[in-house]
Nucleic acid binder design. Structure first.
Length: 420
DNA sequence: TCTGGGGTCCTAGGACCC
DNA sequence: TCTGGGGTCCTAGGACCC
């Protein structure tokens, strides 16, 4: 059996943790640039606030209903996510970190009659140690564990643990779950299945295999098997190295000045390079792209991208920034209001397998040592202490984060203060 | 009129996830 | 004024090979 441990309204719960006055109050967390709603507390959901609702349209509603509004604070959420994972890791059994707020857990070390207590214990230990509420779903496959978890959240909230350990319980939950709420069914498949009269997961598992294969590919077929209780998706204990790394952000305001774009791109490139070095990989293909705001119909529109193949794979920030900047200069045009710049690193290879270039003029050993020292300093002395000049200080491209909370757990200047 | 057959590799696009 | 960001997997179709 597999357990899915999922944090309840994770971002909202993180914000609430350091502001207990917000207990039982509606909370929303906004996307980058405070654009739209990406997370809601239960109270906010009850007020009818939709996922993706535009923040500027909701302003009055938020004020009227005393809704606490936050900008996304990924430093805080990432840090609390780590604490949740560490607490879960203290239980005996393999873990797959599935996302910032979810993990699968292999329960093979526990007897069937211990599973309920296990679920309750996971839930209460995480709450005790970290303060984040979670729900636990336990079932024979990942897809069913997802479903069990959802059921625990919706229908069994007080306990927050649900186990699909009998054929009858599985049947009932399959009937309970609308087809669009099945893990792996997105809007496109939902539409097609509804047209065919398939309303619930229970309807779905009775479809013929070849129809599913034909219309939903092997992905659909796997889903079908998983829902029938046959595991097809393995637990991934070691996260595989990423095949592509991308950083792209909309700016806090529109920019037309090339220097601003260059500074933003240098920062995104450096951030990609750090991720690359963390997973001990190098890239051989850089793609840089820029775009205007396509929502502004009155603006002149421009989108362009350029791919730059490298003869020798690298993960050095300074080198990548140089190439990226060259690419940006190729595709930049003056006279446009730019909304976003981004960089993608693909054709990723392990650090240990790079091929030397015959005409390579870069002193790679020296550069690698420089990166090691830079990463080491930034890790021990705080993020971004040692910087490249190119990363700049103009910051015109920075995100709009009007409602940002403190980085309570990672920055000594922002820890919670209590007056007694 | 009629245009082989069987592979591989790459890319773009679509589907999905949180 | 305002519309998120970062990933994965699969398939079809074109290019290219002998």
């Amino acid at each position: 059996m597999l357990a899915l441990v999922d944090c309840n309204n994770f971002y909202a719960s993180c914000e609430r943790l350091f502001m207990p006055s917000l207990n039982r109050k509606p909370i929303v967390v906004l996307s980058n640039n405070d654009g739209c709603v990406v997370a809601r507390s239960e109270e906010a959901k009850k007020l009818g606030i939709e996922m993706g609702a535009l923040a500027f349209e909701m302003d009055d509603f938020f004020k009227k209903n005393d809704v606490a509004v936050f900008s996304s604070n990924y430093t805080l959420y990432g840090s609390l996510s780590n604490r949740v994972q560490k607490t879960l890791a203290n239980f005996k059994g393999d873990i797959e970190i599935y996302s910032i707020d979810e993990a699968f857990f292999d329960t093979q070390w526990y007897h069937d009659n211990e599973l309920f207590n296990l679920g309750v214990s996971i839930k209460s230990t995480i709450f005790q140690n970290v303060g984040i509420p979670v729900s636990v779903g336990i079932a024979p496959t990942k897809t069913l564990a997802k479903m069990a978890n959802r059921y625990a959240k919706k229908e069994n909230r007080e306990i927050g643990v649900y186990i699909l350990d009998t054929a009858k319980k599985i049947r009932d939950v399959l009937e309970y779950t609308q087809i669009g709420d099945v893990w792996g069914i997105g809007s496109a498949h939902e539409k097609r299945l509804l047209e065919k009269g398939i309303k619930t997961a229970s309807d779905f598992i009775n479809l013929p295999d070849d129809w599913v294969r034909k219309n939903m590919s092997v992905v659909g077929l796997r889903m079908l098997q998983e829902l029938r209780g046959i595991p097809c998706i393995d637990l991934e204990i070691e996260p595989p190295a990423k095949k592509g790394i991308c950083t792209a952000r909309s700016f806090g305001k529109l920019l037309s000045n090339k220097q601003d774009l260059e500074e933003a791109l240098a920062n995104y490139t450096h951030s990609c390079a750090v991720k690359l070095r963390n997973q001990k990989s190098c890239t051989t293909l850089i793609t840089v792209f820029i775009q205007t705001n396509s929502f502004r119909k009155t603006d002149k529109q421009y989108f362009n991208s350029i791919s730059i193949p490298l003869t020798v794979a690298t993960n050095a920030s300074n080198e990548l920034i140089k190439y990226a900047n060259w690419g940006l200069n190729k595709i930049y045009r003056s006279g446009y209001n730019f909304k976003k710049v981004g960089i993608m690193l693909t054709n990723i290879v392990p650090e240990s397998q790079i091929q030397a270039g015959m005409f390579d003029t870069i002193n790679r050993e020296r550069n690698n040592n420089l990166m090691k020292i830079l990463d080491g300093c930034n890790k021990t002395l705080g993020k971004d202490l040692v910087r490249f000049a190119r990363l700049g200080y103009n910051n015109n491209w920075r995100l709009k984060q009007q409602y940002l909370s403190h980085r309570y757990t990672t920055n000594i200047n922002e820890v919670l203060t209590i007056s007694i």
